[in-house]
């Protein structure tokens, strides 16, 4: 039923539309998330609490009680890195909760109406999750060092550690965002937290080498990205001989094994980024 209008208002058009640069959109969205996170201190502190206690209390106590790993690897630093494998998932799962908060508070609708690609809404949040996880991982490693953990810091080692931590964070955030986009209620999301963030921790060799588990569980562990990430992070900071990597791949060359594990974590990260963007884009619009 198109009709002729009877407009009497001024006909001067607004200025021509501007195109938003992707980098600018990404940084703006990350800035928003950083501002919101900084005003929610519990989002920073709560994920850190358990891993910090692991590094500060549990690792030295277990080392004293059990005598450690009975190898050249220091148990305090072994668990210190293992605690990073807990703090990253917890931090990412908490960050994923903010997606639900955005949706329920309505703020997500304003973002969906903005002239930026929907993928940037996911990636902006992810950027902040990466920075926050990195800072929390640094705190955990620092606390472990304070409690006597022995870390071998080299340029290459730092690169392996950072690459593994970064890709694992991307994977975890992608997973958290995907679940947050799929569930409708915060209670359901919180209910999924132990499965997402804590369960893999027990299988991935965070507190002991995966070779210490029954063969079937070891096989399961090898399929988890956390197992590869922890082995890589330890290869970078704790165990240059790459014992954790040998447990996974059974090859002789630690560097080759490290590249293979990095490839596995990268593959998981790429898959979850793709999936999370698609799931978000589909679930955010009716």
């Amino acid at each position: 039923m198109a009709t002729t209008a009877t407009a009497t208002a001024p006909l001067t058009l607004a200025p021509p539309e501007t195109r938003v640069r992707p980098a600018s959109a990404l940084l703006t969205l990350a800035r928003r998330r950083a501002m919101l996170t900084s005003r929610t201190p519990r989002q920073i502190a709560v994920p850190l609490l358990g891993p910090a206690l692991l590094a500060l209390i549990l690792a030295p106590a277990l080392k004293k009680a059990t005598g450690g790993l009975h190898s050249h690897i220091d148990y305090t630093s072994f668990v210190g890195v293992g605690a990073v494998g807990l703090v990253i998932p917890l931090s990412c799962v908490f960050a994923g909760l903010s997606v639900l908060v955005d949706r329920h508070s309505g703020a997500q609708r304003e973002l969906l109406a903005a002239p930026v690609g929907r993928a940037y809404l996911v990636l902006g949040n992810m950027l902040v999750a990466i920075v926050l996880s990195a800072l929390q991982a640094l705190v955990v490693v620092g606390l472990s060092a304070l409690r006597g953990g022995s870390f071998h810091i080299t340029g290459a080692g730092v690169a392996w550690f950072l690459a593994a931590a970064l890709l694992f964070t991307v994977f975890m955030y992608g997973l958290a965002e995907t679940v947050a986009s799929r569930v409708h209620k915060e209670e359901d999301y919180v209910g999924a937290t132990p499965v997402l963030a804590i369960l893999p921790f027990f299988f991935a060799g965070a507190l002991f080498p995966i070779s210490a588990m029954p063969a079937a569980l070891t096989t399961i562990a090898k399929l988890l990205p956390l197992t590869h990430a922890l082995a890589l992070m330890r290869y970078g900071f704790v165990d240059p001989s790459g014992r954790g990597l040998h447990d996974i791949w059974g090859m002789g060359n630690a560097t080759t094994e490290a590249w293979l594990s990095l490839g596995v974590v990268a593959l998981f990260a790429a898959a979850l980024v793709t999936i999370s963007v698609r799931v978000f884009a589909r679930s955010a619009v009716a």
């Binding site: 959109a25 800035r31 929610t40 508070s105 903005a114």
Partner: peptide
């Protein structure tokens, strides 16, 4: 631009921050 039926703001941010974010997102 759209003003939705329900409140659609970041409550923990200030009014200015909400406006600045919109300005940046719209280039």
């Amino acid at each position: 631009s759209v003003v939705f039926q329900d409140a659609v703001v970041d409550s923990s941010l200030t009014g200015r921050e909400n406006l600045e974010l919109h300005a940046r997102l719209w280039g």
